[in-house]
């Protein structure tokens, strides 16, 4: 039977919901599921992880060097604790993408990126070419399987009823000091998190300025939605990078996605194709976004969006 270790992602004392999605992927693989929480004060996220349905054990490593998630610092600790596990999983977030290949190379094994489906304990589906093709991959059963989990493909594990045991570990290894955290500039927002919001409103280049983007914020706030943007809007400086949705930004799967003034480059569509319902508003009736939209509305966003905002208030 498989024995699976998930590396938890957490920030400011909170477990990232992506960790619960890894638990769902691990449940599909089948086996015993443990979660490793590395931090300088990992107790709070460890307690949250212990509540995730299907998880039987939390391993918590408290160490001052673990204050920030540095791959060069985390990787050797994971390697030290990996013995006996058949699978190691992280979310396919910037955290997991940065960290897991470093672990894989230290273990001398391959990594499967962006697991979107599990066909068996060693057989997985993943997207390539910006999601324009999928490939079924088989990993060798004699090696530890390392995989990042494409979070948009998986539901979050239920939280609440279960209570896994929490054990602390302290691998005795020297950690490198060649990589130092300086700061994190975090967008301050009271809006729902883009990656876990049930509804997302995104704006594109057609907004024309950072100032005009407030139309998007007002509409999103009326809906209780998270806010995203196309690469063009980020490149033009209308909004910060963490709002980018698409192949190289965030891959999201909200119940409702509303694309406003976004033409729908293939790289953007990659980021939204698992959305429940897609609405597109664009003045160009030929825009490729209409090919994937469940509901399309052609017209001037500067007229439509205020009307919509008024209609949902």
């Amino acid at each position: 039977m498989s024995k699976i270790l998930i590396i938890a992602e957490h920030l400011n004392g909170h477990l990232n919901p992506a960790t619960g999605k890894c638990v769902s992927c691990a449940t599909a693989i089948g086996g015993e599921i443990h979660v490793l929480v590395l931090g300088n004060a990992p107790d709070a996220p460890a307690a949250e992880a212990a509540k995730l349905a299907g998880v039987t054990k939390i391993i918590s490593v408290a160490r001052s060097e673990n204050e920030h998630a540095l791959a060069a610092v985390f990787a050797p600790q994971i390697v030290a604790l990996a013995a006996g596990y058949s699978h190691l999983l992280t979310p396919s977030s910037t955290f997991g993408k940065d960290l897991l290949p470093r672990v894989a190379a230290l273990l001398g094994v391959a990594q499967i990126s962006d697991i979107m489906a599990v066909d068996g304990p060693y057989t997985f589906q993943r997207p390539i070419y910006a999601g324009n093709a999928l490939v079924t991959i088989e990993a060798p059963p004699e090696q530890t399987v390392l995989g990042t989990v494409r979070t948009a493909s998986w539901p979050g594990a239920a939280s609440g009823s279960s209570a896994a045991s929490i054990e602390s570990a302290s691998p005795e290894i020297t950690l490198p000091s060649h990589t130092r955290f300086i700061n994190l500039q975090q967008g301050k927002s009271d809006r729902p998190d883009l990656q876990s919001a049930a509804k997302v409103v995104s704006g594109g280049r057609a907004l024309g300025s950072a100032e005009n983007f407030k139309l998007i914020y007002q509409f999103a706030d009326a809906l209780g939605a998270g806010v995203g943007a196309s690469r063009a809007a980020v490149d033009a400086g209308y909004v910060p990078n963490e709002m980018q949705v698409g192949q190289t930004g965030k891959i999201i799967a909200p119940e409702l996605y509303i694309a406003i003034g976004i033409s729908g480059a293939i790289q953007h569509l990659t980021g939204i194709k698992d959305a429940g319902t897609i609405v597109a508003i664009n003045k160009d009736p030929e825009a490729p976004i209409f090919e994937v939209a469940d509901f399309g509305l052609v017209g001037d966003l500067f007229k439509i969006v205020p009307e919509l905002t008024a209609a949902v208030c």
Partner: peptide
């Protein structure tokens, strides 16, 4: 090169919806 690609397939396409 430990991984073996067994099969390639196209993604499930979204259906084109309706215009309002």
């Amino acid at each position: 090169d430990h991984l073996q690609a067994i099969r390639y397939h196209p993604p499930q396409a979204r259906q084109k919806g309706v215009m309002v």
